[in-house]
Design a binder for these strands. Structure first.
Lengths: 168, 168
DNA sequence: CCGTACTTGTTGAGAGTTCAACCAACTGCT
DNA sequence: AGCAGTTGGTTGAACTCTCAACAAGTACGG
């Protein structure tokens, strides 16, 4: 055969639109965040999760799961955030392998400074472009996409569904 | 105020679901592509666009626009692809500044080898998870998100909408 | 206990991306 | 023709991410 097997014309258009929309959207938000807060979106997510956790602290491993990041990536990222004084690390008392990351006051301040602008960006570039009906649809679509992929993740690393961390 | 201004609870859930779905999906597809074809998805897109163009060739600048990439990023990427012998560069005859990138036979072969697996991945992880109704919705949602963002792009660089390159 | 297997987290190297700086060539205007 | 401003493309440095390798700790079966 000369041509590889492509998608149906219809799927093709949907796929390219989806690709285009997500690329434009996340590029934009990432750039705005980098400009206004000096960090990429992945780092911002780390700060958000820490800020929402008790004691503003999480084990590295938990934090990695929640941010859907590899342990390696998280380790590098937290190292950077630590350099800025936005996060600190200390040993876990119950598990000597563990490390607990904590958001500092400076880190919290940085998050508080960055959040409104970022939230405005999300609103402006995502929600304002969609009808309430479409917002509902997008949530269901997203959950439908996520379900099997997330199931795969846990299936590979842990036969029983792991339990209490499917928090949201 | 103690808390930054977050999204509505409802928007919050949609936003996190959307974030999660796209992260899981693109991570997965990128990883599969890297494993099976040895290139990231961004490079794959370059090959696709070239393969669909007359003479399997495009000006660097056009290619950058179509792949929604910066000129810098494209320049680095094409340099890599050239090292592998998948793409060649030559001077543009009509504009001495210009460079024309062309997909080689080896590059086309690589694309042909990688495409079916990638297409299967897209189908498996995206379309199979959605109903036909949701696929239609996703297209409209994507187009709605893309419209203002794409308009911004061209607005910054070119007051009149640029014309003949809004090809698809 | 002991040894094997798994988990946690870090590290370093390699690859991709971003950003700013830069040169060369084209455009439009006078 | 000449000049200012724009466009096309590349480069190098800084940064992020990935991957494989590793050290240290925990869990568990014998």
């Amino acid at each position: 055969m000369a041509e590889p097997r492509w998608l149906e014309a219809d799927e093709q258009r949907t796929w390219r639109a989806f690709l285009g929309a997500t690329q434009l959207l996340f590029d934009r938000l990432d750039r705005e965040l980098q400009r206004d807060a000096g960090i990429p979106h992945a780092y911002y997510e780390i700060l958000v999760w820490l800020s929402e956790s008790p004691e503003r602290s999480l084990r590295m491993s938990d934090l990695a799961r929640r941010t859907r990041s590899s342990r390696s990536r998280l380790s590098h990222a937290v190292a950077r955030l630590e350099e800025r004084g936005w996060v600190t690390r200390r040993d876990c008392p119950t598990d000597k392998r563990g490390q607990i990351a904590t958001l500092t006051d400076d880190g919290y301040a940085a998050l508080t400074a960055a959040a409104p602008g970022h939230v405005d960006g999300v609103r402006a570039h995502l929600f304002d472009a969609l009808s309430p009906e479409q917002v509902r649809q997008l949530r269901q679509i997203s959950e439908a996409i996520m379900r099997p992929l997330a199931a795969d993740d846990t299936a590979v690393t842990a036969p029983p569904p792991a339990d209490g961390d499917r928090t949201r």
